[in-house]
Design a protein around this nucleic acid. Structure first.
Lengths: 338, 338
DNA sequence: ATGAAAGCGCTAACAG
DNA sequence: CTGTTAGCGCTTTCAT
């Protein structure tokens, strides 16, 4: 339409010419509309529309040293667990014109590290990580970048910068205590390799705490796979739980999906839940609410962590005070399965 | 450490000085290592490490007009449905140094449009959309950007550029036909407002096709909410399905989550599945495999669509031939629920 | 309220 | 294989 074709996009200069102003005025009309007279603004806006102008944010980023990009790294998206956090984050960020650069680490700190390296090149304005466990190199790079950091899904003293989440340990302890109160005698815990998944380790610890407080011996089972764990793995644990002279009468799984897998297996085998085996999960995913019998579990603030992480970042970037630590809590949800 | 502090990051120039070469040599050592002598490369790499240099991709993008960013917009992440596609995409892209800018539209074309507008400012090298239904403005902007586009999760003639997916209509038809073959007489379909969800409309159409072929009258029920549909909504449909003098003896839901909700409700009410009511889903999500009775459904290539979308893009960007249309097919999975 | 000049940090193009 | 020059498209700074 104008002089350009084949690759060249419309620049601010072109808009300026069309509107009869200088480039900087276009910049202001777009980025700080109240610094420009209403008439000028209208002319610029008309030119923008007429030309289909889309500002090149790479140029803006380079000059202003603000990218309006926030990086987020989660362990996985395949479970709705972290997906909700991501949704909460994007929604809050979008409202302020920030965009989300996302990847999943597959629960591997080394993968996380290489993602951090790659993403930092975009000069993000902030970064959101899952959990508190990262490689030393990742921490160092992030610190060097000097940007706000939020770690989610875990609470602890070792946060790089800001920390929003809940206590996995307290949550598991509270759930276990509720099971004890309901009268179960042999309460087992099914988790994953504690070395591989920090949040699972904390949950296991909470279970141990509660059992110790109740004067019981912990009964711990671990799933062999430390990733890709899901419903299937729960089903596979039943034999171990029910074997021996003194089988478990209740079991708590490290998350709802695994618990549901066990629950379904009980249905297949005709094992009464909670009659012969009570089952509890962790997370309060939708399946926990909707399955039959409905799962006793712990509700965890997935979406809220995302939203809060975003607002902490936005506050910090706007120079508003932002607390270094936000505990969003949890709720023990007693249903029929235990 | 060096002369800089307070905001200024290390630049290529600093690395060049430390390595005793020019900036462009650093650029090449990093971006095209084989165009630099091994010794030089080693010196550069050492300097990079020593200084903790992270290239500023905003600058690179500006000059090279290649951002190595791919934009993806999905309807939601809360369902594992699209999350798998996103995972497949990131994985394939990451291997080639591309990064994913992601957002979810909440199934609203207008939201999608505004996301497109915002994202185009990053000058992405390609864009991946879900489905074939977009606003005219979104299509126009994308076309004007002149970048490769892949539309996923649906197949049709109206694609903007490339299209990878499967036929929702054929899949639903095949599943319905399988239900007919299994001897069900009154097969109902539970979908959502066809105007609100194009893929659901195609599934409904496939169901109609199969019913017509079998000489049956279609029995269509629709969920009131057109978004946020999930397990709960399935449970709520049972009354309608079983009401009247001639209740359905089989029902097919527009996705597995909804089907599972109905299945669980049957368990709660003591309705035999498939004895009194056979239930089928769509998608073959994990819950379909693991619930009891296991769900008859259609397996859909979620992760593969993501991977394929990525390779189409990479091929196109590398100047390799990329087919405009890839049909990944589907599989009817007959299990116990129907 | 508007503009001119300068430069953010890279890499394409062209030497040598 | 390595270097010089220039400029990508914005926004900051300083003027008017």
């Amino acid at each position: 339409m104008t002089r350009r074709m084949g690759g060249g996009a419309i620049r601010m200069q072109d808009v300026a010419r069309a509107a009869g102003v200088s480039a900087i005025t276009v910049s202001r009309a777009l980025g700080a509309p109240d610094r420009v007279s209403p008439e000028t603004r209208a002319r610029v806006e008309a030119a923008v529309r007429a030309l289909g102008y889309v500002p090149n944010l790479a140029a803006g980023t380079l000059k202003s040293q603000r990218s309006r990009i926030v990086v987020a790294i989660v362990p996985t998206l395949a479970n709705a667990i972290f997906a909700e956090t991501v949704e909460g984050m994007t929604e809050a960020l979008r409202a302020e014109g920030y965009q989300l650069l996302l990847a999943h680490s597959g629960y591997a700190p080394e993968t996380e590290e290489s993602l951090v390296t790659a993403f930092l090149g975009r000069r993000p304005d902030a970064i959101v990580l899952t959990g508190l466990h990262h490689t030393a190199a990742a921490r160092a790079q992030i610190r060097a970048a000097g940007i706000p950091v939020v770690e989610t899904w875990e609470l602890g003293g070792a946060a790089i910068d800001m920390n929003v989440g809940f206590s996995n340990r307290d949550a598991a302890r509270a759930l276990t205590t509720a099971l004890v109160a309901r009268g179960y005698r042999r309460i087992a815990f099914v988790g994953v390799d504690p070395a591989a998944e920090p949040r699972a380790r904390r949950r296991e610890q909470g279970y141990r705490d509660a059992m110790a407080e109740a004067g019981r011996r912990p009964l711990i089972h671990r799933l062999v796979e430390d990733r890709g764990i899901s419903m299937r793995s729960g089903a596979g644990m039943l034999d171990a739980l029910l074997a021996g002279p003194r089988p478990a009468d209740a079991v708590m799984f490290t998350n709802d999906y695994i618990a549901f897998g066990a629950l379904a297996e009980c249905a297949r085998r005709g094992i009464a839940v909670p009659g012969r085996l009570a089952i509890a999960g962790f997370g309060d995913f939708e399946v926990a609410r909707e399955c039959h019998p409905a799962l006793t579990t712990v509700r965890v603030p997935g979406r809220e962590m995302g939203r809060r992480a975003a607002t902490l970042i936005l506050d910090r970037l706007a120079g508003r005070p932002a607390p270094p630590r936000v505990d969003l809590g949890f709720d023990v949800v007693l249903r029929d399965s235990a």
